[in-house]
Amino acid sequence: MPKVKIFADSTCDLPPEWLRQYDIGLIPLYVTFGDQTYKDGVDLTTPQLYVKVNETGSLPKTAAPSPADFIQAFAPSVEEGREIVYISISSELSSTYQNAVIAAEEFPEGKVTVIDSLNLSTGIGLQVMKAVKAAELGKSPREIAELIEEIKPLVETEFVIDSLDYLYKGGRCSGMQNLVGSLLKIRPVIKVIDGKMTPAYKVRGKREKALEQMLNNALDKHDQMDNDLIFVTHSLAEEDAQELKRMLEEKTGAREVAISDAGCVISSHCGAKTIGILYVKKDSKGDVHAKS
């Protein structure tokens, strides 16, 4: 058992079997419909989320874990004598990071290291897996934190949003934009830049055109990719995810292209059939970090 235990929150969207295999601690965010609050991925699944949105006609609110939630999650590992590295959803998107920092102060100095991923979904998950491999190699929390700080700006996160409906319901685009976008079949593409969800460009026309554009964007940077691990992350778009995986495996020669399901928090902001390609670039020297 590594001396350092890696924690993440439910927005990392790592496959459940990976969480078990690599002993990754997971702290769920909250999803609230009216007076009912659910733990992301524990009390509510993504398919159930969409059923509730259809029933209520509105999106849920999402909330960060409290400092008490973090303390409760961290305490058993600290009591075992282990040190903790927790990698959070971007502080630009949630107060999760700040609450984890508050919780960390309740433990002896150096026992809990909190890192702001400045990302979301498997953009976090990529960093978590690098941290896991480093912990397995016996790296200290400080060394792991330094590694993640180097990797953070190299994470490429790009998602195709299938419909403007969820962006509209969530207040991220106007009713007129939603109407015009729907009529013209405009599909926005979101990138994560400096920890924020940023509209990168729009694709007009069929969904396949948008997916092809996203795939080509990734393949154009093939020479820059750390081919250790590439994620295709989706919200109820399994068929498209399988096809993107096949193409990435064929064109990149990556050691692993993994498919992951977006959880409730990510899905509540983006909507069904959202799909993304996420990977880490090599650094300026062409080095691959923490390769297993």
Rank of each mutant, 00 (worst) to 15 (best):
L179G: 07
E212Y: 12
V288I: 15
E158R: 15
S260P: 05
T122C: 12
L26K: 13
R20L: 14
L278N: 11
A100Q: 05
G171P: 08
T56N: 10
R172W: 06
L120Y: 05
T62G: 05
D220I: 12
G271T: 10
S90G: 05
H234Q: 15
L14I: 06
P16V: 03
T11V: 14
V189C: 01
P108K: 11
L229S: 05
Q36E: 14
N119E: 04
E249G: 08
I102V: 15
V288N: 11
S58G: 11
I124N: 00
R142F: 11
S292T: 15
S163Y: 06
Q72C: 09
Q36F: 08
I259K: 09
V101L: 15
N54Y: 09
K196N: 04
K209D: 10
E83H: 10
F107T: 07
V85C: 02
K169N: 10
I87C: 02
A104F: 06
S90Y: 06
S284R: 13
V128S: 09
K273A: 15
G41W: 02
L29R: 03
V31N: 04
A68M: 14
N178I: 08
Y38G: 00
V51C: 09
D13M: 07
I71D: 02
N217M: 12
D40M: 03
E243L: 14
G175K: 15
P28R: 14
E143A: 15
E250W: 12
K3W: 13
G123F: 06
V132R: 02
K221E: 15
E208V: 12
V280A: 08
D261H: 12
S260C: 08
Y86Q: 10
L44K: 03
Q48A: 11
L164G: 00
G175P: 00
A290S: 15
L14V: 02
T157Y: 14
G263Q: 04
L184P: 05
G57N: 01
V31H: 06
V112P: 04
V85P: 03
V189H: 04
F7V: 05
I161W: 04
P65F: 00
V78L: 12
K202Y: 07
K52P: 04
Q48G: 04
F107C: 05
K251T: 10
V192R: 06
K221W: 02
D223R: 08
P15Q: 10
S121K: 00
P60M: 14
F107G: 01
S90F: 10
G123Y: 06
L179T: 13
D13Q: 05
M225A: 13
A63I: 06
L26C: 09
L167A: 01
V42N: 07
S182M: 14
G171H: 07
F159S: 05
V265P: 03
T37R: 13
S66D: 07
T45H: 08
Y166G: 03
I89G: 00
M225R: 04
A75C: 09
L229V: 09
L219T: 06
Y97T: 14
C264M: 12
K273V: 13
S88V: 08
C173D: 02
G170D: 01
P76H: 03
M197Q: 13
T11W: 02
K281A: 11
S140R: 01
G110L: 08
E146A: 15
A103I: 12
I115P: 03
P188D: 01
V160Q: 00
V132H: 02
A241Q: 07
L120K: 09
G175E: 13
Q98S: 13
L93Q: 02
S140C: 08
L219N: 04
